[in-house]
Amino acid sequence: MPTLTINGIEVQVEKGTTVLEAARFLGIPIPTLCHDDGLVPYGACRLCLVEVSNGRKQTLQASCCLPAEDGLKVLTHSARVERARRLLVEMYVAVCPSSKRIQDMASAMGVRQVRYQAKHETCIQCGLCVRTCEQQMMAGAIGFSGRGLNRSVSRPFDMTSELCRQCGACLYVCPVCESRCQGPQAESTLCNGCLNISTVCFQSYDNAMCFLEPCHACEIGGPFRADVQVKPRSKDFTRIGEK
């Protein structure tokens, strides 16, 4: 039973537990895009990285693939970790600007602008669909093909696979499929950034109930702030409102 320290809290976990699982056991939220409890860790998104010191040097490591060891000292939200995560999630937003989950994550981490050109890809290659198909659905109908820039999720020979039962699990786990809500200034603001901006619908339909699915920000943020407006600085920069 290895004993490790996470953010100063000592925790004893069973052998074979990963640091991510140990942290979640303590209730410390670590953001991930490629992790799922039922699947073998993959370590693709790197968002779960934590600062680990084993006596001598402090390194950033992906916690989903890091087995808990005796005497490990882990910091899950140090300044260095946060900085690295913000950079990563900023790049993810640039790769897939349409994904709600990524945008929510970015806003929650305090990303205020995206400095990279939007790529509008449809896949971040987290491997969730491939692993779900293989490990949970026992089908193995989809897989990666190619390498480097040409790597993509595909079916063999791009033909309908007889192994595919069309269960839809790949769509269900995909972090990119769900589009961001098309609120005001969907192009220039991050989803969840409505915490800081005024919405149009709220003013025009005074007391009517909103049937749109509330985004994360609406749920935690409550009433919208009418005093803050978004002013995009330039075309290249995606920027959301500042106080």
Partner: peptide
């Protein structure tokens, strides 16, 4: 293509994996 399918059956390796290696 036919040969890859045969290999996949013979080795009991999913065709996706054979294809993945073949394209990598």
């Amino acid at each position: 293509q036919e040969v890859l399918k045969r290999i996949s059956r013979k080795l009991r390796v999913p065709l996706t994996e054979v294809y993945q290696v073949a394209t990598f």
